[in-house]
Design a protein around this nucleic acid. Structure first.
Length: 522
RNA sequence: GAACCGGUAGCUCAGCUGGUAGAGCAACUGGCUUUUAACCAGUUGGUCGUGGGUUCGAGCCCCACCCGGUUCACCA
């Protein structure tokens, strides 16, 4: 492992690389596992019949309390012990299950001989998973509580969980003390983060709900959810550097997909009218608050439609997401309220730039355009194409200011090798991006289905690659062959699920909407 | 890849001008049958990210490296 291998070997009972204090805490808990067995208690039994979740009991509230209370309905709940308050012959503890937290009251005299003192008081810790059966009542202080008549250890934890204490102040504000907040530990040990930070669980529930709403939205329109290859012999559909892997038996390199666009369009050629896929894509680029090497997009292709139709589809679907998650198309974020109410503003890219710089750039020659960019503080390289300069201008001057969802339309053809040319201006394509909170959340176009034009566009990409653009596309001969069989006019859409989840959950980093963000090894 | 900020007990954090490291919670022992940051009394717990250096003496100063965060560059 490392150069310290001449040290005495650590016992398998105590993981290395940990402080002695933590090892002591762990050793004490492991000893408790043995003690439980000595008391005839299985620390890891196989099952427990749960009748109620804590949330259901909270919702039922006083209707679950009988008169007298001990004759109330028996409830069986299971979960993790989060706090303990022991008072000699009785105790309270908070039990957390998948739905919430509920207080439990437990007394020595309600349990079999010795169970309270030996098993509960001495051998049960915060973090253990237990099951109880009892009846519901309210304490003197009015807190809904289950009075336990039966107690079972369900899983003994041998590591301590970081305890946060929550206090409700007189004004009703909740203050959390000692919250588990170290971002590195939270990302590396997400399971602990999820145990102790309820807000984190809520973020991921919202993310899942968001995907479900979108899936249902597309299913209702009878688009087919499909699966296409992640391991691709030729990568394409986006401008990015790929991950490379190797298949031993075939003895060939394969690429992890950077997009699934070209496969989904093959399926449109095959005769499906609408296909979509929630797709993990992989791009071998830097990491940041907005970039993880693997990320999720949904891509959708619909035959006989164009990008105008797709704009309406997009704003309708995302408005539906906002309403499902927040009960309203208006979403509160740190950047202010974002209002997804359709229709969203639509601005052609060149008009947006003209408005920002106060001049019409469409009639400007390349040199004048480059000079303009420099005068606006936008850095341009000598060999940048006209399209690149326009993209830079847009990205620097306009995009960051677009907080409310906005469609930017009609991009230069050089940047969009898979999009159909605009009928009014062959230098542009029928493409839009949806910008929200200063970031692209969706990208779509009327798909190029002219196989000869598509071949020329690929060949231009090859020239760009030869000129040093590592992100330029490869020629996909099989895709061209598919187009030659004829693809109907088609509208295509990609929505960045992580980016949208960040907005919908008001998260500042993509790591906060990924369970397991990419990290360097510990 | 660059700049800035950070890394001290299991968790959250103090630690002054360099003088042998502290609190709360957790844990351990005892007490307490409606508590709720439960409480009361006592106890334990540290490779101060790692490795060098300066110094009589380093958590603190210097250098290198590791990990994380943020910003920038690239991108979705």
């Amino acid at each position: 492992m490392d150069s310290s291998s001449n040290q005495p070997k650590e016992s398998s009972q105590s993981p290395s690389q940990e402080g002695s204090s933590q090892q002591e805490l762990r050793a004490i808990r492991i000893d408790k596992v043995s003690q439980l067995r000595e008391h005839g208690v299985n620390p890891y039994p196989t099952s427990f019949d749960v009748t109620h979740h804590t949330q259901a009991i909270h919702e039922a509230g006083d209707s679950m309390i009988a008169e007298p209370v001990e004759e109330g309905q028996r409830v069986r709940i299971a979960g993790r012990v989060m706090t303990r308050r022991i008072m000699g012959k009785a105790a309270f503890f908070n039990l957390q299950d998948a739905t919430g937290v509920l207080q439990v009251y437990i007394r020595r005299d309600d349990l079999p001989e010795g169970q309270f003192n030996e098993v509960f008081k001495k051998l049960t810790d915060i973090g253990d998973i237990v099951g109880i059966e009892g009846f519901v009542f309210r304490t003197k202080m009015g807190e809904l509580t289950v009075h336990a008549l039966h107690f079972e250890m369900l899983s003994k934890a041998v590591r301590t969980i970081p305890i946060a204490k929550e206090v409700e102040q007189e004004d009703g504000q909740k203050v959390v003390y000692d919250a588990f907040s170290d971002k590195e530990l939270r990302y590396r040990q997400r399971y602990v983060d999820l145990i102790v930070n309820p807000d984190v669980r809520e973020v991921f529930r919202k993310r899942t709900q968001m995907v479900q709403v979108m899936r249902e939205f597309m299913n209702q329109r009878e688009y087919l959810e499909v699966e296409t290859p992640i391991l691709q012999p030729v990568y394409g559909g986006a401008s990015a550097r790929p991950f490379v892997t190797h298949h031993n038996t075939l003895n060939m390199d394969l690429y992890l997909r950077i997009a699934n666009e070209l496969y989904l369009k093959r399926l449109i050629v095959g005769g499906f009218d609408g296909v979509y896929e929630f797709s993990k894509d992989f791009r071998n680029e830097g990491l940041s608050r907005f970039h993880n090497p693997e990320f999720t997009q949904v891509e959708l292709y619909v035959a006989y439609k164009d990008y105008n139709w797709m704009m309406e589809f997009t704003e309708e679907m995302i408005e539906a997401v906002a309403i499902a998650l927040h009960g309203s198309p208006k979403v509160q974020t740190k950047a202010g309220v974002i209002d997804f109410t359709r229709p969203w503003t639509r601005i052609p890219m060149l008009s947006a730039i003209a408005e920002a710089v106060g001049q019409d750039v469409s009639t400007m020659d390349d040199a004048a355009l480059a000079a303009l960019a420099k005068s606006k503080g936008v850095s341009v390289e000598a060999d940048d194409s006209r399209a690149t300069v326009l993209d830079e201008l847009f990205g620097e001057l306009i995009e960051p200011g677009l907080i409310q969802p906005t469609f930017i339309t009609d991009y230069p053809v050089e940047m969009s090798p898979l999009a159909k040319r605009h009928p009014d201006n062959p230098a542009l394509v029928e493409r839009f991006e949806a910008i929200c909170n200063g970031k692209e959340i969706a990208n779509a176009f009327s798909e190029l289905n002219d196989p000869l034009d598509q071949r020329e566009r690929f060949e231009e990409q090859v020239r760009q690659r030869a000129a040093g653009n590592e992100e330029a596309m490869q020629i996909d001969e099989d895709f061209l062959r598919a187009l030659e069989y004829g693809m109907p006019p088609t509208a295509g859409l990609g929505v960045g699920i992580d980016r949208l989840a960040m907005i919908m959950t008001d998260s500042e980093s993509i790591r906060d909407v990924l369970f397991f963000p990419q990290m360097r090894p510990e």
